[in-house]
């Protein structure tokens, strides 16, 4: 079913919207959640919550891109669940490695946290991504948005895992410089 037709179902409050969404994007959502959460049960619960949130948010929102919109919901819910699991010492998936890499970009100091708004930072990251080649952009988004493993990225883009790690390393360095030059206190 076409995305527009699925959105029409949501707008008409037709409950068929959820199974149609799950049928089309279930695999996509599972892949995102699985990279963040290790437990199968957590993934399933996260997906249920995501469909519920989609149902609550459309309408009033009408997403231009249903796949990315749903993906963002899944990612946020999965990461929240991950944080709660870590607090209970039940973390998992690819997240420890991804977060460890991101710690290179930040100071870890809480006092500057409030100074940088999440939206401004996301816009700046978007600006940085626009400066990259499509290949490098895809690698960076795969790692830090989709939380894909290095091996999966290498397989998808027909590279060696070592080359992916090296590319990510350089991109992190470049991003840090890019954000610092623009006055972000990380």
């Amino acid at each position: 079913m076409d995305d527009r037709d699925i959105i029409q179902l949501f707008l008409a409050r037709d409950e068929q919207a959820i199974p149609e969404t799950a049928k089309k994007y279930g695999g996509y959502c599972v892949a995102i959640a699985q990279n963040i959460l290790a437990s199968r049960q957590d993934v399933e619960e996260c997906l249920s919550d995501a469909y519920l949130q989609l149902w609550s948010s459309v309408p009033p929102n009408i997403p231009d891109d249903l796949r990315a919109y749903l993906g963002k919901i899944v990612r946020n819910l999965a990461f929240n669940r991950y944080r709660s699991n870590v607090a209970d010492k039940r973390g998992g998936g690819e997240m420890p490695a991804v977060l460890d890499e991101l710690s290179f970009l930040v100071s870890g100091k809480e006092d500057v946290e409030q100074a940088v708004s999440r939206r401004e930072l996301a816009d700046a990251i978007d600006g940085f991504l626009d400066t990259l080649s499509p290949a490098k952009r895809a690698i960076m988004v795969s790692r830090y948005w989709y939380s894909d493993s290095v091996n999966d990225i290498a397989k998808r883009y027909k590279m060696r895992p070592g080359a992916v790690s090296m590319t990510l390393n350089r991109l992190r360095r470049k991003l840090r410089d890019y954000l610092t030059e623009r006055g972000f206190e990380l």
């Binding site: 963002k72 930040v106 870890g108 500057v112 946290e113 940088v116 999440r118 996301a122 990251i125 990380l186």
Partner: peptide, 13 residues
């Protein structure tokens, strides 16, 4: 800022 915040910011690209 910590790495969680950075991961959150990536979520809004």
């Amino acid at each position: 800022m910590n790495n969680d915040n950075m991961y959150d910011a990536f979520g809004d690209i």
